[in-house]
Amino acid sequence: MFYPNSPQTSPQLTQIPYGQQYAMMQRQIQQPYHPFATTEPQARLYPYHYQGPIQQEQGGFITQQSTAASPQYVQMRVTPVDQSIMSGYPNQTANGSSSSSFNYNIHPQQQQQQQQQQQQLRHHAMPVGSVPLQDDRYRKQLIVNYLAPDVTSTDLHELFSRFGELDGARIIYDKQTNMSKGYGFVYFCHAEDAKEAVERMSGYEFHGKWLKVGYSTNPLNIVPSNSSPYVHAGSRGAAG
């Protein structure tokens, strides 16, 4: 039997160049792979992502010199942007860049009308829970959420009447099932009393439920100042 490094198959040491006398086997001759043993700084910083320098080929596509990437890492192929796409944008300079302001050559009167329309939209648009300043009635009506099913309009009136005089209180019921929808409205005579009720009743436990109280901004629920107070009856038909 002959071994790869046996004296019968191995040459004389004098015939082997210096430095390879003890590297006779194939696994010894093959050098191990060192990912950080390279002179390129990109490979030292990113050993798993770097795959060699990027070269520009004919046709405008950018390719990489090395083989496919590892399945664990996804390499994105980048193509140059066609400058003709950006030619339609206004205020574009000769080098292809555009300024931040756009001039669509709008007539001054049209621009003024658009600004007025935007101001009107901001004036009428009102986020949930906010209180408008032009109508004091919005500051007097509250919406009470997360009410228990057994709470009546009379219970709601008695709960909030300790903060001040009320114009009314009612629970909203479903017309088909005649069941409470879980929320109601309270109408105060003074805005200061309503503000105190919002601050003190939010998070209050009532009939096993934690109440959420806020201003009601729905104009359909506003009680006119010259109208008669609501009837605080315990029956659902009268309260709904």
Rank of each mutant, 00 (worst) to 15 (best):
I54S: 06
E205I: 04
Q134D: 06
F102S: 04
A94Y: 13
T9R: 04
H157G: 07
K209H: 00
Y230R: 04
G214R: 01
P127H: 15
L142F: 02
Q55W: 14
N91D: 10
T217R: 03
Q8D: 10
L147T: 04
V81R: 11
G129V: 06
D136E: 07
Q134R: 10
H190S: 09
E158A: 08
V78K: 04
S6W: 13
Y146H: 01
G237L: 02
G59H: 13
H157E: 03
Q31D: 11
Q176V: 09
M76R: 05
Q120V: 14
Y204G: 02
Q114R: 08
R162F: 09
R77Y: 15
Q58P: 08
Y22P: 05
L142Y: 10
V131P: 05
D167M: 02
Q134E: 04
F61Q: 03
Y104R: 04
A125C: 08
P47H: 09
L159F: 00
P71G: 06
P32S: 05
H123G: 11
G184C: 08
S87I: 12
Q26Y: 14
R122G: 13
M76W: 14
Q64R: 03
Q113M: 14
Q15Y: 06
P35A: 13
G184D: 02
M25G: 02
M126N: 04
V128S: 08
L156M: 06
A148R: 06
Q21Y: 15
P7I: 14
E40C: 11
P127W: 15
T9D: 09
R139A: 05
K140F: 02
T39V: 13
E192D: 09
F163G: 08
Q21S: 04
K195Q: 11
P229W: 11
R27P: 14
T79S: 05
G88K: 04
V213N: 00
S235T: 04
V223I: 10
S10P: 10
V74Q: 10
G59T: 08
N226E: 02
Y183M: 03
Y215I: 01
A233P: 07
S101E: 06
I29P: 11
A69F: 15
Q110T: 12
F2A: 01
G60R: 06
Q110D: 04
D174W: 01
N103E: 11
Y46I: 12
I222S: 02
A169V: 04
Y138I: 02
G203M: 01
A69G: 04
L142M: 07
I172L: 02
S101K: 06
A197Q: 03
F163T: 02
E192H: 07
Y18F: 13
Q42R: 05
L121T: 07
E165N: 12
I54F: 11
S202V: 04
S87E: 09
T38K: 04
S130W: 14
L133D: 05
S100N: 14
S84L: 14
S99N: 12
V81Y: 11
H124C: 08
Y22G: 11
T154M: 09
L121S: 05
Q55A: 13
Y73H: 05
Q20V: 10
S99A: 10
L45M: 06
Q117D: 13
S235G: 08
K140R: 10
Q58W: 15
P71H: 09
E199K: 11
Q83W: 14
P71E: 08
M86W: 10
Q117A: 12
Q58F: 15
V144L: 03
N221E: 03
I85Q: 05
Y187R: 01
P17H: 14
S161H: 11
N91G: 12
G208R: 06
Q116M: 14
Y48T: 05
L121K: 02
Q119K: 03
M201R: 01
Q51Y: 14
P229R: 13
S99K: 08
P53H: 13
I172K: 00
E192P: 08
A197G: 02
R139P: 03
